[in-house]
């Protein structure tokens, strides 16, 4: 599979990708979704990582949330996302990942059992936030389709968001 960009990358780095009206609308939605804070940082991060790996976003897979790192995320936990059902992850994280999988693979598979599991661990507000997060992180589909998602460096980098919800990729993370 080719990983060369399929269209010329945007000329103005960091400003709404190509500066189109749809870019502005997507960025506004994304920033609003990021500012929502009813979910803990680890739950938000495992959902982000699951989307990144399923959609094969090289950039997103190379990032780790600063907030999740502060809350104890490490590479042992991150690796468990790939085989979460057979892992010792908390049941609440497994439920969040089941919803993520259902939405990004086959949303018609969401059923009453999944709804009951979700409501056992999460409030209505948290479930709504999780669904919005799945949309937000899945913007990577646009980048992957056009192969615009090259990582900024080899290895892992810190992903953070400012008070407006705008993203920033920071220093590299030493692993090992």
């Amino acid at each position: 599979m080719s990983t060369a960009t399929r269209i010329p990358p945007p000329q103005t780095a960091g400003v709404h990708w190509y500066g189109t009206e749809i870019d502005v609308a997507i960025d506004t939605f994304s920033a609003t979704a990021v500012r929502a804070s009813s979910l803990d940082a680890i739950t938000t991060e495992v959902v982000r990582l699951r989307c990144a790996r399923y959609h094969d976003c090289r950039l997103c897979q190379s990032l780790r949330s600063q907030d999740a790192l502060a809350d104890g995320l490490d590479e042992i936990l991150a690796a468990k996302v790939d085989h979460y059902e057979n892992s010792d992850l908390d049941e609440s994280l497994k439920v969040a990942l089941r919803l993520t999988d259902a939405v990004i693979v086959n949303p018609s598979s969401v059923d009453a059992t999944m709804a009951a599991q979700l409501h056992e661990h999460f409030s209505q507000e948290q479930i709504a936030e999780m669904l919005h997060d799945i949309v937000k992180w899945s913007f990577q589909k646009v980048l992957v389709a056009l192969r615009l998602e090259a990582p900024v460096r080899d290895g892992l980098s810190v992903l953070s968001f400012d008070e407006h919800g705008d993203p920033s990729i920071g220093e590299s993370i030493a692993v090992g």
Binding site: W17, T20, D23, L99, V103, P107, D111, A115, A145
Partner: peptide, 29 residues
Amino acid sequence: EPVDVYSFVAALYSLEMTLRIEMASRVVL
């Protein structure tokens, strides 16, 4: 043109992911 292809894909993403969570939300929300 490339930027128009990008806009089409971005529009497709917007509709697709919205539809996906609408379907899920009927059951879980």
